[in-house]
Design a protein around this nucleic acid. Structure first.
Lengths: 238, 238
DNA sequence: ACCTGAACACCGTTCAAGT
DNA sequence: ACCTGAACACCGTTCAAGT
């Protein structure tokens, strides 16, 4: 659950009389993510984090310069959990899809913090890695340098949007469910003549459960769009 | 500049001795957007808004229930400025593109508040309108009800992501420029063997100026992807 | 109808100090 | 090295009251 963050938890030479392990940056990041997942990003607060660890708010400033640096660290961790596919000689579109899928695998479980990723991709090595790999495949696909980077930006942004737009969204747990019901009720109660399609889709729009099909459709749209705009080297069939 | 929000500004029967026009909800929304554009969404604060209008913070609560309701109103205004194309008999893909383009036209000038739109589309009539129109065209394209609504969600989310990922981003104005330079410097200084493509693209990645080509490429990718995944009715040429 | 004043429970952050 | 205490300048919001 705490994946790469969990540390041995062996009491390591407690320095003084405090009966508590010293905090670590990784612990802070881990519980920040946990709080965000459960109660939303707004619930992630210096003071809250401190309280959860039985410590004074100002203690955190030893491990982290800023709240912003904490958010950076969260984003970095998201990227760090990502396992990219080995480069291979398969078609560039297939490779791209796998890269994007890998990205989704690590971001999808944490929709609340996904938004942080957008502005912070270039801050972490792992983020640079995805970008590099994405650019490389786009170049292989024949796009110019400039178009490749535009597309890479779009693609990463779209993937994050895909995650954030997901229905299970809103802090996971209790209230999400009833919020979904309320939203559905609102949509079904709309004037049918004015919004026939919205009403017909109200189930799916209000909060379809976190379906794999939604994400694989997202990947299809993304890859399909890129492929459709790729320069054609030779006139292949179809 | 204040487009639909600007009101006549004629002194309308001042009630009592206060030498000031009574506030209006629309004025609040207008200056909230202006503040967000200039200094970022975080700068939009009940107290700041009050100060700008020479009024006590609590005065705002007469016009607005909540800060959240204020944010709702901002999103609503974004949608409301949108002018959708008249339905026509042209190909559904062309229509879709125009709808999305119209969406971009109203959201693009306000990247800082674009994120608000995502969760609030179904809250406003104008937001429902875009959704309805989008769904209708997708149905025309032959998608099932369920896939249509998944795609509509994805598309709107992607458009917003497109705007937010845009470079001119970060509160417009002074500091954006130097932030861009710093980012570019960081990217160019990266180990060239490890991130060859990132380095080569550093100009474009760091902050290409707000280019129309970026957005039209985004539309191409979006529409291309949708079209590529549309059920084919008959085997047309190509 | 429209706004003020005082008060409350929260924020992030600095700075000097403790062990 | 790691943490505390007190203090500061901010938040959003409630409630009773003014005109």
């Amino acid at each position: 659950m705490t994946d790469t963050l969990s540390s041995p938890a062996k009491p390591r030479a407690r320095r003084r009389s405090t009966g508590r392990e010293p905090l670590t940056r990784d612990q802070l990041v881990a519980s920040a993510i946990a709080i965000a997942d459960a109660e939303g990003l707004d619930a992630v607060t210096i003071r809250r984090l401190a309280a959860d660890h039985g410590v004074t708010p100002m203690a955190l400033y030893w491990h982290v310069k800023d709240k912003d640096e904490l958010l950076d660290a969260i984003a970095e961790h998201l990227f760090a959990t990502m396992v990219l596919p080995e480069p291979s000689s398969r078609p560039w579109t297939d490779q791209l899809r796998e890269i994007f899928a890998a990205f989704l695998v690590s971001v999808r479980p944490h929709p609340e913090v996904a938004g942080l990723a957008m502005t912070r991709i270039f801050g972490s090595p792992a983020g640079l890695e995805v970008t590099e790999r994405t650019l490389a495949e786009l170049r292989r696909g024949g796009f110019t340098v400039e178009r490749s980077s535009d597309i890479a930006c779009y693609a990463l942004a779209a993937l994050i949007a895909l995650v954030r737009a997901e229905p299970a969204c809103g802090p996971n747990g209790v209230k999400s469910e009833e919020a979904t019901r309320a939203k559905r009720a609102l949509l079904t109660s709309l004037p049918h003549e004015q919004y026939p399609n919205v009403v017909a889709s109200s189930d799916t729009l209000a909060g379809r459960s976190s379906r794999d099909s939604y994400f694989s459709l997202g990947l299809d749209l993304l890859i399909g769009g890129i492929q459709a705009n790729a320069p054609k080297r030779a006139a292949k069939s179809a």
